[in-house]
Nucleic acid binder design. Structure first.
Lengths: 221, 221
DNA sequence: ATATCTCGCATCGTATACGATCTGTGACCG
DNA sequence: CGGTCACAGATCGTATACGATGCGAGATAT
């Protein structure tokens, strides 16, 4: 349960916001899916006004597109959007990880190592969803304590964007998983040996960029 | 007029959104300013529902804070927020500039040089607002053609966040302006000599980080 | 004089209602 | 047979109304 669930004492517009957001993240609402306000309102037992507010907030985050007098739909996405998002995540995550290094305790490092070992264990009988979830946790372990919370929030937001895109574009490249685990090892090694933060940042960034390259090769060949 | 004005055929909630946003950017609504929905609705001659939507969108962008059953206010900001925002801009803008290098034509480069010369000319009879505006244009010239539009949008959004904070925190450090112009020269020189994009990125980032350092020294001394 | 309690007002949160706009279907005409 | 127009259904956009909640002023007790 990496997704933040709705606050308990929240208003209906808040609840609706989280309800829709979760469904988008879980890919129950795929890109292009039509969000009819009245239908959602009925389904949740609320009126349309809170639903409108929720959808507006999702629009501001780029998860939903709103067309006047036509309606809302889960934001469409093409290959370029996907790659741009990965690129942006590479930048944000690299910086967040580098900034987090001073805060990084033994506990988080061991946690990250455990997670990467579990990913290694998954290489035999592969499960894309579980692998992705572990991957997210791994990176979170490295920068969730980011001393710049604003930057940290942007990282999380970018990740949500990606989780929405992942299955529709289907960026999963079969042979990428073992490389990914190896690159995690490299990042962890750099941190363990107190490498220059810039090197750690570039390693994280390279790690993401290789995802893009692998994807391009996969599509091209 | 760097600020985007409201679309012509826009709905009332759109118009309200831009109306509030502009006022925040212009610092007519300073951080902490209370946004009473009913009052704004009356002032604009609309009902409260569109105003609520507009405020929700602003909340999602981090410009407004909403407290349940209490009301909305322009997001408060402290020194830490300000510095975090500059740090984040350093990261985003550095990456955006580096990615834009291949697209960067002679026209944009000359445009940037002209802008920096105008800033140099301003050093004598100094005007913070004009200097800031030129500074924004200068950096825009370098990365407005960013091949990753998503990243580009995050840069612009971060800049809006900062323009909101700038006057309230008043981060302007008197002696910083000449340094700033000199650092722009350095960045331009690196680009002119086809330096490694990573070096350009780090130069842009250093440029922003020095703003933070100068601010800290200024406050400390 | 200070602290606490209570009541009223200001404001928010949501439901309902109605007018405005768009989309798609079917008829009509060239 | 293809294209255009008109109408109907669906959906959005906004106004109004009312209940819910929190904050502050005034009264009261110590």
């Amino acid at each position: 349960m990496t997704e933040t669930s709705a606050p308990i004492g929240a208003s209906k517009s808040q609840l609706t916001y989280h309800w829709i957001r979760e469904r988008i993240a879980r890919q129950e609402f795929v890109p292009g899916y039509r969000l009819v306000l009245g239908t959602i309102a009925e389904e949740l037992g609320v009126s349309v006004v809170p639903v409108r507010e929720a959808v507006r907030r999702l629009e501001a985050e780029g998860l939903v597109e709103f067309e006047k007098n036509v309606g809302a739909r889960v934001a469409l996405v093409d290959e370029a959007d996907y790659l741009n998002s990965v690129e942006t995540l590479a930048v944000l995550e690299g910086a967040a990880t580098a900034l987090s290094l001073p805060q990084l305790g033994e506990a988080e490092l061991e946690q990250a190592e455990r997670l990467n070992d579990r990913m290694r264990g998954l290489l035999e009988r592969f499960d894309p969803d579980e692998f992705t979830a572990l991957n997210h946790e791994f990176h979170n372990a490295l920068h969730l304590q980011c001393p710049n919370p604003h930057l940290g929030e942007l990282v999380q937001r970018e990740w949500t964007r990606l989780s929405r895109l992942r299955r529709s574009i289907f960026a999963f490249v079969p042979d990428r998983a073992p490389e990914s685990v190896a690159e995690h090892d490299e990042i962890l090694h750099l941190i363990r040996t107190d490498a220059d933060p810039v090197d750690v940042e570039l390693a994280v960034r390279r790690h993401r960029r290789r995802t893009i390259e692998a994807y391009r090769r996969h599509r091209g060949g």
